[in-house]
Design a protein around this nucleic acid. Sequence first.
DNA 1: ATAAACCCTGACATTAGTGTCAGGGTCAAG
DNA 2: CTTGACCCTGACACTAATGTCAGGGTTTAT
Lengths: 125, 125
Amino acid sequence: MKIGELSARTGVSIRSLRYYDKQGLLTPTRLENGYREYSPFAEQQVRTIQLYLNLGLSTEQIAGFLHCVMKNKEAFCKEVVPVYREKLAEIEEQIALLSAVKSNLEERIRSIMEEDPPNQPLGGE
Amino acid sequence: MKIGELSARTGVSIRSLRYYDKQGLLTPTRLENGYREYSPFAEQQVRTIQLYLNLGLSTEQIAGFLHCVMKNKEAFCKEVVPVYREKLAEIEEQIALLSAVKSNLEERIRSIMEEDPPNQPLGGE
DNA sequence: ATAAACCCTGACATTAGTGTCAGGGTCAAG
DNA sequence: CTTGACCCTGACACTAATGTCAGGGTTTAT
């Protein structure tokens, strides 16, 4: 199938499919006229790519094991777990940072609220 | 004081100080030769800017109330709390998303670990 | 007067996936 | 042969604060 049909089937934009091609994630064969020709398996492959992107993995990370997971079960691809753990650590770090900022903001709001109750006739700047 | 000294005193790069100037956060007077001349109060102002940036606020948001908070207590500036609440909502959304992805990753790792115990002689790709 | 140490502006790069446009080729139906 | 629906590549935009470089002025001390 050609790129427009794959896009329609998967809901992934043509632009993104071309990007996946350039990143080596999904490299279709080419017709004589230069058009990309995708195998029927490409549809599942696109869905798999989207799944990993939604986990926050980069195209480069995905490229590192996509070939394997399309052929085997995820568990057979030794590259997968390290990438998952790496991403997990990154996410935990982000959550910790965000939580700290969140607490800070909450404390600031709380502190302002008790210092400037709404029945005070004072305006701002 | 000139920009180099302010940078040295605060640890904020000259580049960033010029950026704050352009964003209207910290607008020094100019000497006859065009050099920026900062008042002694600028040092505290820079620290305040950094504090808000570390809370994840944008220079635009900070510009919205910096003038007021430099003159009064934060609680007197009515623009502050809405910005805090907005940022808080944003952060909570991000944490929720990250937490969902985190659970997904953990589940995937767990699932792989029990399917492919390390005593199995199978390699990946 | 010259060198060192300042200062200035403007511009490009950074992240990473996607949108979008320009300019152009291909192909099928009428 | 023309129209419309495809397809191609390349390039710029986006976010937002910061790094960095180019090219050039100023000041201070020797």
